[in-house]
Simulated assay, not measured.
Amino acid sequence: MTKSDVVEDFLHARRSAAAVHTLDRDGIDSVLRFCAAHREDRPTTPLPKNLDPAVRVALRTMDDAALRAIATAPIGKVRKFIDGVPHAIHGVPEIVKNNAAPEAEQLPPPGMTEHQRILWKIKAQLEKTKASEPFRAVKP
């Protein structure tokens, strides 16, 4: 085995590894590719369709410093950014998902009497406990 054979085998292995299609089920590779792309290439860089629309809008409207911070962040923090949970990437705003309930909906509606407000709180507590109960199948 000569030196040229070793180099040729190495280059062949490198080419075959680069040719492997990466599975991008949750969109992390596409987001990292988008964030690392040059400013002029970003409009043509595709984002996965399975990303939340709020994340897509945020990525398209972020400045270069925030996108660079995402591109250099660890994968776990990027995954948290995509999921809309606190991610601790400095300079990158947190994304609020559309399915997150705003705090204003948890307050009683204005103009209620004291009696109606108490009934509203009781009803809210009952619905809250029912929403968190696990599903139980009835035994035949």
Rank of each mutant, 00 (worst) to 15 (best):
D64Y: 05
I70K: 08
V57C: 09
A54R: 15
T61S: 13
L59Y: 05
L59V: 00
A66C: 06
F81M: 04
M62P: 04
T61P: 07
A58C: 15
K80L: 08
R68I: 03
M62Q: 06
G76Q: 06
D64C: 06
R60Q: 13
L67S: 09
K80A: 13
D63I: 01
P74G: 07
D63Y: 08
K77R: 15
A65N: 12
V78C: 10
A73G: 04
A65I: 11
M62W: 03
I75K: 14
F81N: 05
A54K: 14
A71M: 02
L59A: 04
T72Q: 14
D64F: 05
A66H: 06
P53S: 01
V78T: 11
I75C: 03
A69S: 15
A54E: 15
F81H: 04
K77G: 02
P74D: 15
L59H: 03
I70S: 06
A71H: 09
A65L: 12
D63F: 02
R56C: 10
D63G: 15
K80E: 11
T72L: 12
P74K: 11
I75H: 10
A54Q: 14
A66K: 01
G76I: 00
D83E: 15
V57R: 15
K80W: 04
I75E: 14
D83K: 15
I70L: 15
A71V: 00
R60I: 05
T61N: 13
D83H: 10
R68Q: 13
D83F: 07
K77Q: 15
A65Y: 08
I70R: 09
I75D: 13
K77I: 01
A65K: 13
P74C: 05
V55A: 11
A73I: 02
V55Q: 06
M62K: 01
L59T: 00
G76E: 14
D83I: 02
R56T: 12
R68C: 07
L67R: 15
T61C: 10
T72I: 03
P53R: 00
A65C: 08
A69C: 07
A54N: 13
V57E: 14
T72C: 09
V55D: 04
D64V: 11
A73W: 09
I75W: 07
P74I: 02
